[in-house]
């Protein structure tokens, strides 16, 4: 009884951490540019698949692989910024049009991944051991714990960056009003570029870590993007922390729905719940911040 509960709790927290990190990434990009990035899940996919390439195919030591994974994700983010976001903004495109542009970018990234890795599911080698660890009735493994720790680590890092640094102040200023921020000498284009790079880094790391548990497949990005959106929408797009909390909530709901209800309907049931939440609170559970700003 307790064992099942703790097992579900840990599984939910692990998946929820990944959804939360995607939600956080989406929210950071949204905060600075008012754009929802449909390619966010593809960064996670890139993280998992480049991990296969660097750790298994090229058999590099893991610190080197970690850096290379981050580099690939950041390069992809720069491509997205310079190839999609900036040209569209210069042409005064609507945010929803830019969203369709990021969808096109997701298709392109998927297409490139198809060329490089093919459609098969790949085993992603874990950095930490997958061997079970026992704390009393609690069964877990190092990888799972590391993902949860990484989630909170990124949460703290993001909070520190946004609220305790000068740079974070300019990010928040850009989020409130890009034009005024520009007049105050903040280069908002660079802020947006940084937010793309940072969120790609976060998502790429999430992919590297969750890969061994989910398995790496180039089609994994889409569902993760959707879950990340749902996390961000459920918590409230306006705040990265609300979005991250939304991710944890979705992960936990998913796990408990699968464990105590029916695993068959776990996924549709969550979307029903999210719809209901949106009906009651149109800006997400913790979304007052965003509502006030309108």
């Amino acid at each position: 009884m307790m064992m099942k509960l703790s097992y579900l709790l840990l599984a939910g927290l692990t998946n929820g951490s990944v959804y939360g990190l995607i939600g956080l990434s989406l929210s950071i990009i949204y905060g600075s540019s008012r754009v929802i990035n449909f390619a966010q899940g593809e960064f996670v996919m890139l993280g998992a698949m480049t991990a296969v390439m660097f750790l298994a195919t090229l058999a590099l030591p893991w610190p080197v692989a970690l850096v290379l994974v981050a580099v690939v994700a950041i390069v992809a983010a720069l491509g997205l910024d310079h190839g999609v976001y900036r040209p569209l903004v210069r042409r005064k495109a609507e945010p929803l049009t830019i969203m369709i542009g990021t969808l096109a970018a997701a298709i392109i990234i998927y297409g490139i991944a198809l060329l490089v890795w093919g459609p098969e599911q790949k085993f992603v080698p874990p950095i930490l051991s997958l061997a079970p660890i026992r704390f009393g009735f609690l069964m877990t493994n190092a990888q799972q714990l590391a993902i949860i720790a990484m989630f909170f680590g990124f949460l703290v890092a993001t909070w520190f960056l946004l609220y305790r640094t000068r740079f974070g102040l300019s990010i928040r200023a850009t989020g409130v009003n890009p034009r005024v921020a520009l007049l105050m000498g903040i280069r908002s284009e660079r802020i947006v570029q940084f937010s793309f790079m940072y969120s790609a880094f976060v998502s790429g790391m999430a992919g590297l870590m969750i890969g061994p548990l989910l398995g790496g497949q180039i089609g994994m990005g889409l569902l993760l993007t959707v879950k990340g959106f749902m996390a961000a929408i459920l918590g409230g797009l306006g705040s990265p922390f609300a979005a991250a909390a939304g991710g944890l909530a979705i992960g936990l709901m998913e796990a408990f729905m699968a464990g105590y209800g029916t695993s068959l309907y776990a996924e549709p049931a969550i979307f029903v719940l999210i719809l209901l939440v949106l009906i009651v609170r149109p800006y997400g559970l913790l979304g007052d911040y965003e509502a006030e700003r309108r």
Binding site: M230, Y265, E267, P268, F271, I274, L278, P282, G284
Partner: peptide
């Protein structure tokens, strides 16, 4: 749902599509 705007409306309707797809599948 029509109270929602822009991205929230997009995501809520996407959730509706996923629910429909899930039911048709399951």
């Amino acid at each position: 749902l029509l109270r929602l705007r822009t991205h929230y409306l997009a995501m809520a309707t996407l959730a509706f599509m996923l629910i429909q797809h899930g039911i048709a599948n399951r």
